[in-house]
């Protein structure tokens, strides 16, 4: 009997009678992580990782019915053993492992193989079938080492400080913002936009310690942020709120910045390839480590990545989902309202 089925509402576990990251309201949803395209509104009941619980409540509603469990533990639902494993994507992101009568399926959600020293590092999980994302599924995407990336970004900030400029980073409030805080730790005072501040507070309730930040609002004195670091959601690019910052140098932080052309036409100064998704080699490494006999490829470069997997002898199929419905936009396109 088949364990999972791709339906119009989402990825369905047949014997378990629950969905994984569904995009239509269902009775029971298991959620990989708190991004808006994976954790949606309207489910009767949610199950997620412990560290995602407060985020889900913050984003979807305080009154939702949500239970949680830690990594490497297990819960049986209608005879299906459900387990969470670190995905390294954002705080509280999990790969979802399903086991039924000895047959194992793993749903990756979104993941990153590289250690960012903030989220619990990705852990490969052996399975029969692996459902993987493919946001950066092209061989041109190869991230530099975290230390090298950090060096580049810190040099940029130092240079800005030397010229009395405020360093403004654009990054999503969940995931990218915390990562930027970590990368900028020790570089001076960090101000964050209210949206980021609120997510940080939700994360803090889980006991995770984030680098210290101050809240930046429309009321904050503009002189106060001069020469400092400000992190804001990408939707603010070009807004009056950013224009109010005196002498700002702006940077987009996204995997898409790996390609020079993607930065140039945005009206920003710098583009740093900071991504919370696996790069090409990361995807390949993750897929191979599962030793799966079948790989389903979801959002991103699914056609390309699954074609390539088939060519190197890993049976694969692309699957249409509603994840990252514009995920290539969400990391790169600063004005898009969706989060990846």
């Amino acid at each position: 009997m088949k364990l999972i089925k791709f339906t119009k509402k989402g990825i369905y576990c047949i014997p378990g009678k629950f969905y994984l990251d569904p995009w239509f309201p269902v009775d029971f949803a298991i959620i990989s992580h708190g991004h808006a395209d994976h954790a949606r509104w309207g489910m009767s009941h949610y199950l997620c990782h412990d560290d995602s619980k407060a985020i889900l409540k913050h984003r979807i509603g305080q009154d939702i019915s949500v239970e949680s469990m830690p990594y490497n533990s297990e819960k049986t639902i209608n005879g299906v053993k459900v387990g969470f494993f670190p995905a390294g994507h954002t705080i509280g992101s999990a790969q979802i492992r399903l086991e039924h009568k000895g047959f194992v399926v793993v749903f990756s959600g979104d993941y990153k193989v590289k250690n960012d020293y903030l989220t619990v590092p990705f852990e490969p999980v052996k399975c029969h079938e692996f459902i993987t994302e493919s946001t950066f599924g092209l061989p041109i995407y190869n991230w530099m080492k975290e230390e090298e990336l950090q060096q580049k970004m810190q040099d940029w900030v130092l240079n800005n400080q030397a010229r009395n400029r405020t360093s403004v980073f654009l990054g999503y409030s969940l995931g990218k913002a915390q990562r930027l805080m970590k990368l900028m730790e020790g570089m001076g005072e960090i101000y964050v936009h209210t949206a980021i501040h609120n997510i940080n507070e939700a994360i803090a309730t889980t006991g995770i310690k984030l680098p210290a930040t101050k809240k930046w609002t429309a009321e904050t004195d503009k002189k106060e942020v001069q020469n400092k670091i400000v992190i804001v959601p990408p939707a603010l690019l070009g807004s009056n709120m950013i224009k109010r910052i005196p002498n700002a140098a702006t940077a987009i932080c996204s995997g898409w910045m790996q390609i020079r052309g993607n930065k140039r036409w945005q009206s920003v100064d710098a583009g740093f390839p900071v991504s919370d998704h696996a790069d090409w080699n990361g995807l390949l490494q993750a897929v191979k480590a599962t030793e799966a006999e079948k790989v389903y490829v979801t959002h991103g470069s699914q056609a390309i990545f699954s074609k390539y997997l088939n060519e190197i002898g890993i049976p694969s199929e692309e699957v249409k989902t509603e994840y990252g419905s514009n995920e290539d936009d969400t990391e790169a396109e600063p004005k898009s309202k969706q989060a990846s």
Binding site: W256, G261, R264, W265, A332
Partner: peptide, 11 residues
């Protein structure tokens, strides 16, 4: 899609 610097978007 634009070429070079605008290659990510339909321009």
């Amino acid at each position: 899609k634009g070429s070079g610097r605008r290659s990510a978007h339909y321009t």
